[in-house]
Design a protein around this nucleic acid. Structure first.
Lengths: 246, 246
DNA sequence: TTTCAAGATTTGTCCAGACAAATTTTGCTT
DNA sequence: AAGCAAAATTTGTCTGGACAAATCTTGAAA
């Protein structure tokens, strides 16, 4: 019964060309066929072909020069980076552009291991929220875990909305401004749980981001744990000025 | 007369909307006018408006949702990205992991144009060092130009080693600590010189990084100009902590 | 052989229109 | 007031065509 996701034509063409480039049918350094001939081959309008080529270009696989043609720059999408989400404020945007599917919430006592990881006191009552962030098209992007003290449970719904809105909410709930945000980033093979949630193959690279919000008095207010997978990654935002590098 | 640079319509519209967003005419969080009304306002086809909106979206300023409209996410474009080397400390690592092939050194008087670009005084005697940074396997990665006052010529060999080691050397030569490091990043098609040095094809994206070191008293100590190409990028290092995102 | 101009090729810009798909609004019904 | 279905709105996909601008190719002239 139906329910199939309809793929745009340009997306199909993009995939065909991407795979053919990967297979070496169009070697790196060579020109792709012209737009006109691709139109004939796929029997579509130039708009559709250009849309596909534009995506190949966005993936860093193809360079397009007026008058010269489209040249193959590399045979795989230039994954890893971040094309879109780069800095902390981008993370806010990330939260706004994606949807959270809440998998569950849990009241727990902070176990020593986690307490150590997020810098809280073991045994304190904390609240845990787990969910999957999806692109508007349903593509899973990240597995997110939020940790806050249970006394902040009232703003739990806001927590689900991401780092932007919660920022003010956290400060308000804590009764003082947020003084510091720390972030640790680590690349690792996707843990089974993450791989399953994000549809990754076992062993696929995944990016783990741990983020801590502290109040003015140094109290830990919240901790977020992101696991990002697939070909969309995020980088660490760091301060580098004023201190000579070693 | 003549010699004018023709700007595409969508580029003009992009700039108008970008500036209006920056000016707060379309506040962050609000919807932009619909494509149809923008068509009327600028008296262009929907294609042209969509092309402009697409660029606003690519700049991270606007989110577009089918059926809902285009929403303003931020009032300034967000910068460039990253693949391997990301922060200032990564640049140090970059310098340590790569070899510099010195192409030449030159004593020059700071010409007005360059003086303006790097913030020095025109006519001062400066030293210029050009070279290619290569990966251990010989793969060319970046074309680097270093500029320092000739009174620092003694540490020129160190300059060739990259930003890490020179940091201390510069401070020592200047007789006072380095107070500030400024960095400007720009993505551009590789200039011929750069393309040739790095073995890039015409039209390949290249990243231009201009870095200025200033002493405590505000004197410019050194300026470095990097052109990075191929599939290895660097992004602008920014400070994002302490201020709650809006 | 070299140089240069004309032509051919290829991508960039732009239009007008059509329908599809998603969301929001409206208004009726309960 | 609340729920729900229809209508209106808005962006997404796609066609066909036209001309401009940049690059490459060809061939004649020097």
């Amino acid at each position: 019964m139906g329910d199939e996701v309809k793929t745009p034509l340009y997306a199909e063409i993009f995939e065909v060309l991407r795979d053919e480039i990967a297979a070496g049918i169009f070697p790196v350094g060579d020109l792709l066929p012209s737009e006109a001939s691709l139109c004939k081959r796929f029997d579509v309008s130039r708009f559709t072909v250009r849309e596909a080529l534009r995506r190949l270009q966005a993936a860093g696989m193809v360079s397009r020069v007026q008058g010269a043609g489209s040249r193959v720059l590399r045979d795989t999408p230039s994954g890893v980076f971040v094309q879109k989400y780069r800095s902390m404020s981008d993370l806010t945007q990330f939260a706004e552009e994606t949807n959270l599917e809440v998998l569950g919430t849990k009241n727990t006592l902070l176990d020593p291991d986690l307490a150590n990881r997020i810098g809280g006191n073991a045994g304190d009552p904390w609240l845990s929220i787990r969910g999957v962030r999806r692109m508007p098209d349903g593509d899973p992007l990240a597995l997110v875990e939020s940790f806050v003290p249970q006394r902040f449970a009232a703003i739990a719904p806001d927590l689900a909305r991401g780092p932007g809105p919660i920022y003010a909410g956290l400060a308000e709930a804590a009764g003082e401004p947020i003084r510091d945000v720390e972030q640790e980033t680590q690349a690792m093979p996707a843990p089974p749980q993450v791989a399953q949630a994000l549809g990754l193959v076992s062993g696929a690279p995944c990016l783990c981001i741990l983020r801590r919000y502290s109040s003015q008095s140094g109290t830990l207010i919240a901790s977020f744990n992101w696991h990002l997978g697939g070909d969309r990654y995020i980088h660490r935002t760091r301060i580098g000025l004023g201190q000579p590098p070693r």
